[in-house]
Every structure is written in C-alpha cells, then in structure tokens.
C-alpha cells in the first residue's frame, strides 16, 4: 500500500486520496477475507491431493511400507496389464452404449412430453422420480429383477411368455448392458428435465416462421429444434459421458459375490482403482490408474469447451 505523504500542504488532498484508497483497499480486503477459508480449502482439499496423487503414482507405496520412487514403473505395468485393457474397454463400452441410448430416449420423451398438456406434471413426475433414488438401493432392486428363475421377475416374465430365460448378470456378454439398464434408467429423469428446459427456451416465433414457410414437423425438428438445442446437447453429452466413465455404485452392488462380473466382464476403471487401492493396498499402482482416468476426463472436458465455442 502507498505511504501517506508527509508534506503538510498536501495533507487535505492526500487525506481524501487515502480515504478513496482505503475504500477500494477495504473492498479488496473484504474480498480476500471472504475468500480466505475457501482458498485454503481448495488448496488443501483439491490441489494438494491432486499433486499428491500424481506423486504417489510414481512410487511403489502400498500403505504398509514406506514409499519408494519408481519412476514410470506403474505406468509400464499398467500398459502390460491385460486386466487394465479389459477394464479400459469396459469403461468405454459403458460410455459408448450408455450415452447415446440414454440421450436418444430422453430426447424422444422430452420432445413429446413438451407437447403434452394433459396431466403434463404427472407424466413428468413419473419420469423424474428415478433420479431421486439412491443408486445403491436401486442397484439391489435391479439385481433382484435380473435374477434367474425362480426369483427374478424379468426371467419369470420371459418364462411365462414362453421365451428362454436369460443369464443377465451371469453372462460375460449380457452383464455389462444389464448393469447399464439401471444406470440409464436413473439418469434419464435429469436429462429429460434439462431437455424440457432447453426446448422451452426456443422462442415460439422460430417455429411459427418455419410453419409459415411450410416446413414439415420432421424438418423443423432437424433444422430448427436440434441446432438450437446444441448447448443443451453438448452439456448433456458431456455430463452423461463423465457419469458413465465414472460408473461405480451399480457395478459394485450388482455383482458383490464376483466383483467386476464374471471374468471381469463388467469391471470399469473406478472399480479397478478401488480394488487396487483399498483391497490390495497397491496405492502407487492405483494412483497411476487415477491419473489415466483424469486424463480421459480432461480430454472430454476440453472437447466440450471447443464444441461450445464453435459458432452454431
């Protein structure tokens, strides 16, 4: 801060100046006072641990032994670990199956729901309810649904229709899509509401103009609605993608007796991280896995920023 000038003749002017300085300095002070606790928090609980995670990924720490710097050993081990590649593929399967399926369904529902007036609030509530459930609770409910005969409702339904029973969670092929069902189901409520908000935000004058021009409903959907929904779409694609890449609760709870599904067929990266860190205590190796997850998510977020900046 500036020191007050000592010359008596300028005292009055300087006084006003320092008053003014104090006023803005005061506000700077207030600002930093408001930010003091949060800045410490973000430093200690977000940035420091991030740095620590990177650091640990270069060590062979296993919680019970002191850490030793091993350079890129953990990353080398990761690249050579067939389980990692299996898990990597699974994680992307969750993403490339889950995101489009849930968004197409949500959009179709929101698009029609937006035009419905009769019992609109009630219908919306039906679709939104799953979003408010606890993933752990619903994972067990769905696990029950997918049980074989004689307990599983779905297989009993299939049997009563004369269709062959399905192994679902007990199949290396079906288990992953089976786990996606509740994940998609629970996320749709949120997506539908966001789509509805996006649809509402499109001025009706656009539609009126299009109708006057004689465009068909289909053409309006493709040429007006969807382009104008781009920000909403980008947001939901990124939001859903990140959610599927981080899937954990459903996988963990739907397959507790064989974690990660038969022959690791449902194991996503986050389950591998959890098991490596908290079951095997191989903390260094687990940290390397988290760094990989971080890089994937970073790439997706940067992609979002690029898409958002592009002119519509």
């Amino acid at each position: 801060m500036h020191e007050a000038p000592a010359t008596p003749g300028t005292e009055r002017r300087a006084g006003r100046l320092s008053d003014r300085l104090t006023l803005s300095a005061k506000r700077v002070l207030w600002a930093w006072l408001f930010l003091a606790v949060p800045v410490v928090f973000y430093g200690a609980i977000r940035f420091w641990p991030t740095a620590e995670a990177f650091w640990i990924s270069f060590t062979d720490w296993n919680l019970l032994r002191p850490a030793q710097f091993v350079g890129l050993d953990n990353y080398r081990r990761l690249l050579a670990d067939p389980l990692f590649w299996k898990v990597f593929a699974n994680t992307f399967l969750y993403l490339i199956l889950g995101t489009p399926v849930s968004l197409v369904l949500s959009f179709a529902i929101a698009y029609h729901l937006d035009r419905v007036r009769f019992l609109h609030g009630f219908l919306r509530a039906l679709y939104f309810l799953p979003f408010l459930t606890t993933a752990v609770a619903m994972a067990w409910v769905w696990r029950y649904f997918f049980q074989p005969v004689p307990i599983g409702p779905i297989n009993n339904l299939l049997a009563s229709l004369g269709l062959p029973a399905q192994p679902f969670l007990r199949s290396t092929l079906q288990a992953l899509p089976t786990i996606l069902v509740p994940a998609v189901w629970a996320g749709m409520g949120f997506q539908i509401i966001i789509f509805l908000a996006g649809l509402r935000a499109i001025p009706t004058s656009y539609y009126e103009a299009a109708r006057i021009d004689g465009l068909s409903e289909r053409a309006i959907l493709w040429r007006i609605t969807l382009p104008l929904l781009k920000p909403t779409l980008v947001f939901l694609v990124v939001f859903a993608s990140i959610g599927f890449l981080r899937i954990f609760d459903y996988v963990y709870n739907m397959n507790t007796n064989d974690p990660g599904g038969p022959l690791d067929s449902t194991k996503p990266l986050v389950i591998m991280i959890y098991q490596t860190a908290f079951k095997s205590y191989d903390v260094g190796y687990a940290s390397a896995q988290t760094v990989v997850l971080f890089l994937i998510l970073l790439a997706i977020s940067l992609l979002q920023l690029r898409l958002m900046r592009q002119p519509t």
Binding site: T50, E52, A53, I56, R246, F248, A286, S287, L293, L297
Partner: peptide, 8 residues
C-alpha cells in the same frame, strides 16, 4: 475426478 482424490 473425485476418484483421483480419494486415495490422498
């Protein structure tokens, strides 16, 4: 991601 921070 939270998953990166849980270990630290």
């Amino acid at each position: 991601p939270t998953e990166m921070l849980v270990i630290p």
